[in-house]
């Protein structure tokens, strides 16, 4: 890739969604942001304007732990347009009681090593690319031992 196109790609990146996860500028690891209702204490993810339980409009950001357990997953061989197959996707249960669904960023030959109950951590990655090359960056899950691996 030439420097010129790399730059163009960089400009075409969108983050889904800055309210949902943070990539700290100090270089520390990305994490998801839950929302805690100041009135009833219920936790939600991702950000909601009104607490579904009590209709309070005051919800405080509550950073989530970075590691959770894989509840279930699949490897999709027939994907949505804009997403490359095979693609692993799964639901991860976090210690605060929140379940989050997202892509699992592992190489195709590593997908056989995925197991229900394994620990996965939150990272940032490209989750889709439209036909004009515009990339969407969002949270993904990665195995602990291979935090820098992936596609």
């Amino acid at each position: 890739m030439t420097e010129k196109t790399a730059k163009a790609d960089e400009q075409e990146q969108v983050i889904f969604h800055p309210d949902f996860f943070k990539i700290p500028e100090d270089g520390s690891k990305p994490y998801l942001v839950g929302l805690k209702c100041r009135n009833c204490g219920q936790l939600w993810f991702p950000k909601l304007p009104i607490c579904p339980a009590c209709w309070s409009e005051t919800l405080d950001e509550s950073p989530m732990e970075r590691v959770g357990k894989l509840y279930t997953y699949t490897i999709m061989n027939v994907p949505q347009p804009g997403v490359k197959a095979p693609l692993a996707i799964g639901y991860v249960d976090f210690p605060n009681g929140i379940r989050v669904g997202a892509q699992i960023d592992v190489l195709p030959d590593q997908m056989k090593n995925l197991r229900i109950g394994m620990d996965l951590q939150v990272g940032a990655g490209v989750i889709r690319e439209d036909k004009n090359g515009k990339k969407t960056i969002s949270y993904v899950f990665r195995p602990l031992a291979a935090s820098k691996g992936g596609k």
């Binding site: 889904f16 949902f20 997953y73 347009p81 997403v83 693609l87 669904g101």
Partner: peptide
Amino acid sequence: TAFSPDANDPEGVQGITMPGIYAMRAK
């Protein structure tokens, strides 16, 4: 192509499909 949730859905944007959701139930 597989039927999928709305592209604005937080799981839809991640690429999840209806077969994917039922596959996870099956798993």
